[in-house]
Amino acid sequence: MADTFQFRLVTPTGVLFDGAVEQVTAVGPLGEFGVLPLHTNFITSIAPGVVTLKLGEANFNEYLLAGGLAEVKDGVMTILALEAEAPGAVDSIAAAPVVLEAEQRLAHMSEFDPAYADAVQALALARARAQINQLRRAPH
């Protein structure tokens, strides 16, 4: 059995990761999911959160994604994200007031507002930023 598979993390500003991984864990609309080698062809959307790449024993790589799409095709996984950042670059303290702001905006919004889905996304992203340290599982 193949131990690793190819994974690419692609954003409009460049390819952030392209290489062999053992496992990828990300957050989809139905919750967290993992992809191992020989996964079937698969498309899903990605919710704002952390994607974890297992490169080897106790060797992890992580990125914070602002949502996007994941595709597995012929054993190659691609995540397309509009924005991605390394957790080390995330300022979780600066994100705290953003969470409050997003929560307040959402509280005054109708569910039928066209911007509602965006507001939910913004809140999820802000929360992921603020809690980045709890969401990470790699030793740091």
Binding site: P29, L30, F33, N41, F42, I43, T44, L82
Partner: peptide, 23 residues
């Protein structure tokens, strides 16, 4: 390609469409 689509095509199409326009 025959894909397994999650949660469903109907829910994913707007997401992809939006991404397409954004891109």
């Amino acid at each position: 390609t025959d894909y397994l689509i999650e949660p469903s095509a109907a829910e994913l199409v707007p997401v992809v469409m939006r991404g397409y326009v954004e891109a």
